[in-house]
């Protein structure tokens, strides 16, 4: 054995089951492997850098291009409620309001539905139904938003106008939220369409995390005499909490940026009204609507300033969500 290479010796030792064999000697230190690693590492570093550079360039572009609007209006751009291009008056508040209110409505509706759907798929659906239902939910995420928009205009909005909206206006119009008139197009309809769009995000993430629920937790609760609902309530939902929050953040990001469907449904009026049936406008919808025909540099600059605000709002929402996930994870 003395004349054998260290590699051979190592292998022979293993075969014989000798204990305390040292780790296998490294082959050709400084040779091909190491150089290959270095190349591989630098290629990956370049890829990573490209992403950072793109984000950086985007930020620089958005900031510099919007500087004219900021110089002209200052913070008044954010608090201004008047958006009147003919008079070069640009205030973004109605758009910020529209984005936030539709996203909040969407999330309030989509979170329980999305989580419920995930619970159904995991806990209640018979095995043969599970994958078709999950597949349909994922399919919903693949539908282009313009399709939702068209469906919204031609099917959903008329149905809202003659159904739920009419009912709410005739019975609850003493509440400012449900004050008429209603055209089917408005903040509520946009929020509901958004909810449909984002449900799959919440469902898939929640479902994936719920699947990781340890069997022994589930069985431990069942063995105590828990009903199915109690297992969900005390084991699965607490376990999936971070997944639910995470999925909701992902969905919220989608809702904040969603443009086409919202533009088609929301009614496009830059106003802040308490009624859910009132028309509104979102940051992304005003950019999509007006960018192509924006004639003056101040106009263009103001629209880019809105893009910057959208970025900031998305960032704030995500940081808040992040903190939420963090605190949820800690409270475990």
């Amino acid at each position: 054995m003395a004349g054998q290479s260290p590699r051979r010796q190592w292998w022979a030792g293993r075969q014989m089951g000798i204990a305390a064999i040292p780790p296998m000697p490294q082959r050709r230190v400084g040779g091909m492997n190491v150089r290959g690693d270095a190349i591989f590492r630098s290629v990956l570093a370049v890829f990573a850098a490209i992403i950072l550079v793109i984000i950086g360039l985007m930020l620089v572009m958005v900031v510099t291009q919007s500087s004219e609007a900021w110089r002209k209006f200052g913070l008044g751009f954010i608090t201004g409620t008047e958006w009147a291009p003919p008079f070069s008056k640009f205030g973004a508040l109605p758009y910020i309001y529209g984005t936030v209110i539709t996203s909040v409505i969407a999330l309030m509706l989509a979170a329980p539905i999305g989580v419920g759907c995930a619970v159904f798929i995991i806990e209640f659906a018979p095995a043969w139904l599970r994958s078709p239902v999950s597949f349909m939910v994922e399919l919903l995420a693949a539908v282009p938003s313009v399709v939702f928009g068209l469906w919204g205009i031609f099917v959903f909005a008329p149905w809202m106008r003659n159904g739920p909206d009419k009912f709410l206006v005739s019975h609850f119009s003493f509440i400012p939220l449900f004050k008429g008139p209603t055209f089917g197009l408005g903040v509520l309809s946009a929020g509901i369409i958004l909810a449909i769009i984002i449900v799959p995000y919440i469902t898939s993430v929640t479902r994936e995390v719920m699947l990781l629920t340890p069997t022994n937790q589930r069985e431990g609760m069942l063995a105590l005499g828990a009903t199915r609902w109690e297992v969900i309530r005390y084991v699965i939902l607490p376990f999936a909490r971070s997944g639910i929050v995470g999925g909701s953040i992902l969905a919220l990001g989608r809702a904040l940026g969603e443009t086409m469907a919202v533009t088609m449904i929301i009614g496009n009026r830059a106003q802040i009204k308490p009624s859910l049936f009132a028309q509104g406008a979102t940051m992304s919808s005003v950019i999509a609507n007006e960018f192509a025909e924006a004639a003056t540099t101040l106009y263009t600059s103001s629209l880019i300033a809105i893009a910057l605000l959208l970025l900031v709002v998305a960032l704030i929402m995500n940081v808040l969500g992040r903190l939420l996930v963090w605190s949820v994870a800690r409270s475990r």
């Binding site: 431990g220 069942l222 063995a223 105590l224 005499g225 009903t227 607490p238």
Partner: peptide, 21 residues
């Protein structure tokens, strides 16, 4: 089965206290 399990308790191989409690 739910009522039965309240009369027949069980302890598992791996300790499984509920982590959220």
């Amino acid at each position: 089965a739910v009522l039965l399990r309240r009369k027949v308790g069980m302890v598992f191989q791996k300790p499984n206290p509920f982590p959220s409690m």
